[in-house]
Amino acid sequence: MSESMLSTKSGVDSRRSGAAVTSPSQAGGKPSGPAGRDRKSRGAEGARRHGTKGGKQGSNVLAHCVLSIGGLAMISPLLYQIVMSLSTNAEVQSTPPTLWPGVVQWSNFADVFTSMNFGSQLWVTVAITVVRVIGQVLLCSMAGYAFARMQFRFKGPILAIVLSIIMVPSQLFLIPQYQIIQNLGWLNSIAGIVAPGIFSAFGLFLMRQFFMGLPDELEDAARLDGANPFQIFFRVMLPLAANGLWALVIITVLWSWNDLLWPLVVTSTANAAPLSVGLSNLQGEHANNYPILMAASLMAMAPILIMFLLMQKRVMAGIGRSGLK
């Protein structure tokens, strides 16, 4: 059921939200609804939808050339980083550059553990990410739902003000936010790192966009069955917005994992700090020891890279969708 709902959704929403692009369902004249399922599921399958056109295969050689050279260029900094993390400091600074270390220095990775509290910082990072994702998904989806599908006073002005915040550089919030957290006594705590991030104007907007694209029928049916707005939201509408939730989860995980300035300001003990802060402190201490810096930053990025590789279809679909609105 939810599968067909999803496809329903995409068909409807591209029309409803005045989708910028002609959606296949419109162009093809297909009615929106469960029947559109096979055509609408986007993401990785999307490429196939263009059909398996025969000819012109030859010109794909050029495409492969361009794409593979470009792709290699894109990840070459990371490859370079891997090589550096396995080299000696002298090799890093040698000319011509070292393409592969003479002796692979696995010890650089071991040294990271003695240089920073990697374990506890990983735990903090995971904890703040989980809390922030859960909090944001819950709060933003509720608020986004209300802004999309409910009427209340001052809705327009409130929305306009909230959205304007999305554009403001985060550095501007730093001092006042710090003072609030300090007054709450949340310095050096997961609560303190997470608190401002749970409330997200962007998340609210993203979820509002997704909810606006959902069909009315199921909501109406549930209402006729006597369900209250909470029940309608949690049982009917939220499951329908799964794609939007995924987009929000992915983006929030990225921000939370990589965020540096805020956690650095609110945490002052090494055990309460997340990996991003640990990494920047490491840079202060071992400014000259490139291999250890490279190894540490690889280790800090690894969980998120692995997660991405495992879930890349959803990530791509989620991010791609966020731009279609």
Binding site: L174, I175, Y178, Q179, Q182, L260, L261, L264, V265, S268, S280, N281, Q283, G284, E285, A287
Partner: peptide, 20 residues
């Protein structure tokens, strides 16, 4: 005067001193 090119912590210190 060490070159810690990631001395974001300076910001931290400054923020904290304000709150102080």
């Amino acid at each position: 005067t060490r070159r810690s090119f990631l001395s974001f912590a300076a910001a931290g210190a400054a923020v904290v001193s304000l709150a102080a």
